[in-house]
Amino acid sequence: MIPLSFILRSRCRAALSGCAYNYLRVNIMPAARVKNFCRSSSVHNRTIGHLLDHWSRNFENDGISEPVESIEHIVAHVMGTKKILDLVNMRERELTKEEVEKLEMLCQCRLSRMPVQYIIGEWDFRDITLNLIPPVFIPRPETEILVDIVLKQLSSTQQEKCRILEIGCGSGAISLALAHSSDKVQSVAIDVNKHACNLTRSNCKNLGLDDRLTIINAALEKDGIIKILDDTENKIEFNREEFDFIVSNPPYVPTSKLSELAPEIKIYEDLRALDGGSDGLDVIKPLLRYAAKALKTDGSLFIEVDTSHPEYIVFFTKKYSDLKLKHLHTYKDFCNNDRFVQVLKFRDV
C-alpha cells in the first residue's frame, strides 16, 4: 500500500506542477487513451457544458466516486469560482486552450483517485476557506459542528479571554474557525506532522489570525505527555501549562477498518490523522490523561470520536476517578450518530 500511495502521490504532484502530457504518456495511461481523451475533449469542443458531460462520463466509467460533483468542482476551480451552481449558467462558455490543458491535468489527478479538495487545493470549513495540501487531513463537515459546540460554550463563559489548546490541528480548521468566530479565543495548536504545522501556519496568515494562534510541532505521547519536536522559539511548557478548553479531532478509525476506507482517503491522506489503533482509542486515552493535567478546574475537553467511543469514555472517567474528569455530554452529528464528547475537569472535593 505504501509504495502505491507514493507513486500515485508523486505522479499527481508532477501533473499539478505542469508537465502533464508527457507524464501521462510515459507513466500513467496507455498512449491510445491519452490520444483518445485529447481528441475527444480538447480539440473539438471546449464549452463548459461539453467538458462537464465528457469528464463526468469518464469518471463514471473509471468508477470514480461523485463523478459529476468532481468535474464540477474542478471546472469551477479553473473558472475561479467556489460555487458549482454558477456553472449552470456558464455551460455555453468556451475555455481557452490553456484552461483546457489545466483542466485535463487536474482530471488526471482525479482519475488517480486524488480527493477533489487536494486537486483544487482548497475547501471551505464553516465560513473560512482553507488551503489544503496532501497528505494533511481534509476537514470533514461533521467537525463544523464540533466548532459550534465549543463556540456555544465560549459564549456562555464570563471570561474575556479563553485559552484553547488544539491537539492534532491538521490544516488548522478547528483553531482557525474558532479564532475567526470569537474574539475571546487565544489558542495554541500542535501537530505531530511538520507539514500540517506549516499548512496551519500559512492558513493562519491568509486569514490574518497570526496574533491569535501559536502553532507548534509537538507530539502527544502514549503516557499523556506532550513532547515538542522542533526547536521553536515559542517555548510552551505543555506539561505545566493550563488551558480553559482542549479541543481535538484525534485519529479514531480502528486500524482494522483502514483497509475499508475509500482509496481517496487511504492513499492520499496522512494515516497518522486517521489510524486510532486497534480500538480507535490510541490517541483518545492519552488525550484524556493530558486533559486531566492541563485543564483548569471547570475547563472542558471537546473531542470528535467514533460512534462506539462515548460509552468507553464514560467508563474511563469512572474507572480513573483520580483524574477528576467527568463525561458531561455526548453530542450527535447531522446523521444522528454520537460524534462529539465533552469531558469536564471538576474541582477537588
Partner: peptide
C-alpha cells in the same frame, strides 16, 4: 429534521465526500 447525503455508513473520518447539501 436535518438530513445530509452523508447519512449512510460510519461518517466522520471514515468518509470524504464533496457533497455538502443539506
Amino acid at each position: 429534521k436535518i438530513e445530509t447525503k452523508r447519512a449512510s455508513g460510519a461518517g466522520g473520518q471514515h468518509v470524504n465526500t464533496t457533497d455538502s447539501a443539506v
